[in-house]
Nucleic acid binder design. Structure first.
Lengths: 247, 247
DNA sequence: CCAAAAGTGTTGAAGTTACACCCATGC
DNA sequence: GCATGGGTGTAACTTCAACACTTTTGG
């Protein structure tokens, strides 16, 4: 992927990734953890890196994603540019950058991206970054380094908007999933409760799911049916002018 | 950032503005025109400029907007970052940049913005750019310099999405306007026909318009009633949880 | 038999679509 | 008096919101 890359860094532009994952229960974000100077608290940041001079922006974002997770060709979308001149100037941020950047004082504009990964596919590769990457449930994320909280908030907002316009949630689930898992996913992303019956009726009526013969096994309750997303049907649906994927 | 004012140009980052205007009939975009090398055809681009080292991104966009139109404090929203490494490499683009940039070969990532201006308020200030700025109806805009067509398309897409979620159209109209003008505006932005009766009914039911005593004068047909946008009512409406501004 | 989650229908309210004619004005 | 755009109502249909009980399994 980045074999033939000009390895000269562009010192003014970086890409940061909000990587969302769903553990079939809660929405999580993959963060880089680092000890603070005091060593008591931890300090978290989005994974990110400066871009290369001849590298397209989303290639850079994909590179960050790939170095961290080993995943390729997955959902990735730009959130926007974040370029406040003092976005890197808190004391803790400065300390971090001094340890990590060649020119820690440079003004850097970052391009934020978000991506959706099935947590089951996720193969952690912490060695490549030599930093600890961990999934943190989204409600437990407080402040982040730099302006990363702002990027995260922007990403989540985009994700919500997008979900109501395109059924991208399947990117966060394993290939086979139950309607309850999908239901929980929508609730986790949108941050609201959705009526179970209404959710199921509407989702099934869209006719973009394919029901499998398989059912859950070994669960201490009525076993749930598995479905998978049928991309073909989804594209056919778009051609007929369907546009209401909202919940 | 941490050192004092650094009012130098940042040679790697620019801001480009898609400035939409509505002449009560068609949607227009303010473009910079320039003669091609051949001199036969004209070559058009979005207004834009490199940012200053200590300048926030939207301040830069506002600056471009203000230098060109004299307007301040108007609707302005980011479209996103555009950073393809060869976005400036067509021969005509190179020629333009050679005439205008200190380092015409540098890779520049640009941040696209769009803004909405009432064309009646618009005071052209072409002197400041020493280039011809002209309103071009959106259907008549073909190819543009650099990747500006792509930025324009992104801006229009965002504008459409936003319009269905927030009644921002009023930014494109004079303070007093008729429902027909508003109707034409929605059709121009969304690019579809909307039923007159249904449009009026829904718009009025939102209760964000204030009807004025005034009516049109001197028109060769039944004079139309004027309305104005009531921002107070709009904000009250948001508090009650209203969210359906779509057409 | 108990706990736990899966699965299932109906009804009333609200919203959306489609559609055609009269009105006030300037010329 | 005619051309022009302004202004108005209704009926069929679709969608949405609210709501409670039975089923299947493991332990």
């Amino acid at each position: 992927m980045h074999d033939k890359m000009n390895h000269e860094l562009n010192p003014r532009i970086s890409a940061d990734c909000v990587i969302f994952g769903f553990d079939l229960n809660k929405l999580n974000v993959l963060l880089i953890e680092r000890e603070t100077v005091v060593g008591l608290d931890t300090y978290k940041a989005l994974p990110g890196d400066l871009i290369f001079e001849d590298e397209p922006l989303d290639t850079a974002a994909n590179r960050v994603l790939n170095e961290l997770t080993g995943l390729e060709d997955i959902f990735l979308e730009q959130v926007g540019a974040f370029g406040d001149p003092d976005r890197l100037s808190k004391p803790q941020d400065r300390a971090w950058l001094k340890a990590v950047r060649q020119d820690p004082d440079a003004r850097v504009v970052t391009i934020g991206y978000y991506s959706l990964v099935g947590m089951n596919n996720y193969v952690p590769q912490p060695a490549s970054f030599a930093r600890a990457a961990t999934w943190i449930p989204i409600e437990e994320i407080g402040e982040l380094a730099f302006d990363h909280r702002q990027i995260l908030d922007g990403a989540l907002k985009k994700l919500k908007e997008k979900l109501n316009v395109q059924p991208i949630g399947f990117n966060l689930l394993p290939e086979k999933f139950t309607l309850s898992q999908l239901h929980r996913l929508y609730e986790a992303i949108l941050g609201v409760e959705l009526d179970k019956r209404n959710f199921r009726r509407k989702m099934l009526k869209m006719d973009i799911l394919e029901s499998l013969e398989e059912r859950q096994e070994g669960v201490p309750h009525k076993p749930s049916q598995f479905y998978k997303f049928n991309e073909q049907k989804y594209h056919d649906l778009l051609k007929t002018g369907f546009d209401n994927f909202a919940f």
